[in-house]
Design a protein around this nucleic acid. Sequence first.
RNA 1: CGGGGAGUGGCGCAGUUUGGUAGCGCGCAUGGUUUGGGACCAUGAGGUCGCAGGUUCAAAUCCUGUCUCCCCGACCA
Length: 612
Amino acid sequence: MTLVYHRDIIPLIHTPEPGRTTREHGTGGTFAMRLSQAFGKTLREQPAEVEMASHGLMLRAGLISKLASGIYSYLPLGWRSVRKIQDVMRKEMNAIGGQEINMPVVNPGDIWKESGRWDEIGPEMARFKDRSGRDMCLAMTHEESVTDLARRFIDSYRQLPCVVYHIQTKFRDEPRARGGLVRVREFTMKDAYSFHTDQADLDRYYPYMCTAYERICRTCGVPVVKVLSDVGMMGGSMAHEFIYLTDSGEDTLILCPECGYAANREVAMFNKTPEQESAPTGENQAPVEKVHTPGKDTIASVTGYLGVSPVLSIKTMAYFTQEDNRLVIALIRGDLDINERKLANFVGTSQVRLASPEELGAHGLVQGFMSPVGVGHLEVTVDDSISPEYSYVAGANEKDYHFVNVVPGRDFSLDSVADIAAARDGDLCPVCNAPLVQARGIEVGNTFMLGTRYSKSMGANFQGEDGALKPLVMGCYGMGVGRLLACIVEENRDEKGISWPITVAPYHVHLLSLGTGSQVIEIAENIYDKLGQLGVEVLYDDRDESAGVKFNDADLLGMPIRVTVSKRSLEAGGVEVKLRAGEESMIVPLDGFEDKISGLMRHEFSRFVPEG
RNA sequence: CGGGGAGUGGCGCAGUUUGGUAGCGCGCAUGGUUUGGGACCAUGAGGUCGCAGGUUCAAAUCCUGUCUCCCCGACCA
């Protein structure tokens, strides 16, 4: 009946040939599609711009098409997967109390000024003025909009906790888009926000969201690890990232294979106790002494020259802060490296950059021989690897000279000590002391305990049980739809093409007919109709192409179940059925064919859908 | 932002060094032969060589500028 309506209203674009079924558009075009009519096409060769496997496959399979750097269109097959991914997200969000809303892409600058991010965020936010000169921007994320909603509608603790989410377009003018859908400028993100009376309630809720994230990724066939992460531009107290491990990822993780400790390198901790323990220099500490160290301007060269371990040297670094261009000095044990992210967070800036040799000179600092001694007038941060129990070799801030017997606390201040060291492959786990390993990965999603970062600045308060007005305690939880799609393809593929998890495959079944024999066509059409009526999503390759082209396209497009109708299969007693992920094919008699397909579908779904 | 590379029919590329007005493969169209792993034959459509200036009798090719795309780096004293 849908069909009649459809045809009455819209003249057929494609007139069926005699002998073809009149079910040209299947059940309303939802469950079925003829490849001969599909918009888009497969590419035999990989476009030159491609670097990552998933990117090449998505272009070759006709899932996406690039409009500009980091800006993509989705073609019908890709969009079907996107919608399925979104539905997986909806299901899991709804299951933990989420209510779907939708917030605008275009924001007034005002709310971003209220939160303070109008000035904090740089050129990655696209800004413009409307016709009457008001500041506007494209939302990069929606904390401001959702906090505005919260302050309008949440008045009382009785309304808490509550969770809203939306799936919306965002724009970030990334300095460098790359990897197809992995890093783009315009993208779709599922964003959830939770509101709580206090931190304890957020603590209680947060694990539910983490579980939901793991379920989403599992359903989509993407293994992820949950790692501690930096709070970045979101602010707040604690954050995790859900990472798909792959060498082509752009995030660096530090993982402990023994106890499961996992963190983004930006925040990763480690046990800094050096392997060979030196005897503490203890009480009888000699006075600082200046020694001649000609040309020894690196830790390695100076410690080698003086015959001491780098562990007993101090590395002095000079940085400038992003916003106010403050000079900050960072001290760390000679065998370690500074983690600029940790340093920036500690000194309260969005980013630090290393001082240039000219800038060092302008501040009276000597490159290669910088010293912790005599910089007391500057802002100094000391890594907690440096111990007052020892005496160290350090620069003398004079060309070709170093100090020995430098004692922290005696010769320079230890007022400002923090962990600002970068964890590296092989460093020891902060929890269990096993060697850590470094890995690369793609950040699929993140979860933040925002706390009151936005509710305070934007005045989103509620009245507590005691009648007092308090700021809402918030959590926010993002997950990139397109990026997840890229990870799905990156993970579920082989040398021939994509091998979709059935949960997010554009179609369940790829039906193809070989040859032009009338019996073959008739049976294929019949199967197409029947499966469509059963709600099985069928992509039907009805093109007049050679067997090689059809099989190769089926492998490239990667639907989970392939059904081949041919003269040969009919002679063998039915149609050939093959799983994309498997090796063998089988002949299935037409009688009972539907049962066989639904059995295979159940089997395929069970591989990806978590229990419960 | 810094460094490197590339823009030539829809896609992949050659031609640029040594200026002489564009070619190959795939794809597309038409006809025919094929039909279980990217078939074959024939015919044909499609490009002001990213754009703008300049040099020259003549520019895809040389010069200048500009735009776009891709890759690498984001400086460890």
